[in-house]
Simulated assay, not measured.
Amino acid sequence: MKRLLLVLVLMAAPVWAVQPDEVLEDPALEERARDLSQGLRCLVCRNESIDESNAELARDLRLLVRERLVAGDSDDEVIEFVVDRYGEYVLLRPTVTGANWLLWLAGPAMLVLAGGVGFAFLRSRSKGVAPQEAALSDEEQARLRRILEE
């Protein structure tokens, strides 16, 4: 029972990242802020959204998002503001435009290339002539017989 309670508490830990003093009074704005925060990467933590992170920088970013929403910015304007300020790395789901195409296509291209190289290697091995074992000379045969007799 204690283990189950511990597991449930640990699973709920990310929910506690947003502090009560950060929550907006308008539920619609708060919902938008939470949605935006879940798509922004914490710059301190690895692959954790600012909505889940307890880092100070994540808190600052959550407050920044809420400030921009209260100021009347649309969701796209808030994201654009944060990306302009911190770079595209801040997006958990990067856009598939411009130079990012190269990054998105690099993985599958390398997989196809590795498969082609492996296929060519295996094909060349199957067609190649196996080296013949050289027969032992008379001197080597005599030496082998002496070793086996010992």
Results as ranks from 00 to 15, higher is better:
M1W: 02
R3W: 06
R3F: 08
L5A: 11
L6Q: 11
L6C: 07
L6E: 13
V9L: 15
M11F: 11
A13S: 09
V15D: 08
V15N: 08
W16S: 14
W16I: 06
V18K: 07
Q19G: 09
P20L: 06
D21K: 05
E22A: 09
L24A: 02
E25S: 13
D26W: 01
D26G: 04
A28L: 10
L29G: 01
L29M: 00
E30F: 06
R34W: 04
R34L: 10
D35W: 09
Q38H: 08
Q38F: 09
L43P: 02
V44E: 10
C45R: 07
C45H: 02
N47W: 13
N47D: 15
S49R: 00
I50C: 00
D51R: 14
E52H: 07
E52C: 08
N54M: 13
L57S: 05
A58V: 03
R59P: 01
L64C: 04
L64A: 08
V65L: 06
V65I: 11
V65Q: 01
E67T: 13
L69T: 03
L69Q: 05
D73H: 10
S74K: 02
V78P: 03
V78A: 02
I79G: 01
V83C: 00
R85I: 03
R85A: 06
Y86G: 03
G87R: 05
G87P: 01
E88R: 11
Y89W: 04
V90G: 01
V90S: 00
L91V: 04
L92W: 06
R93V: 15
R93T: 13
R93F: 15
T95R: 12
T95V: 11
T97L: 03
L102I: 13
W104V: 15
W104P: 04
L105D: 00
A106V: 07
A106G: 02
G107Y: 11
G107M: 14
M110E: 02
L113V: 11
V117D: 05
F119N: 06
A120F: 09
A120H: 07
A120D: 08
S124D: 10
R125Y: 00
K127V: 05
K127I: 06
A130V: 12
P131F: 03
Q132L: 15
Q132K: 15
S137I: 00
E139F: 04
E139I: 08
Q141N: 12
Q141K: 14
A142I: 08
A142Q: 13
A142R: 12
R143A: 15
R143M: 11
L144Y: 08
R145K: 11
L148S: 10
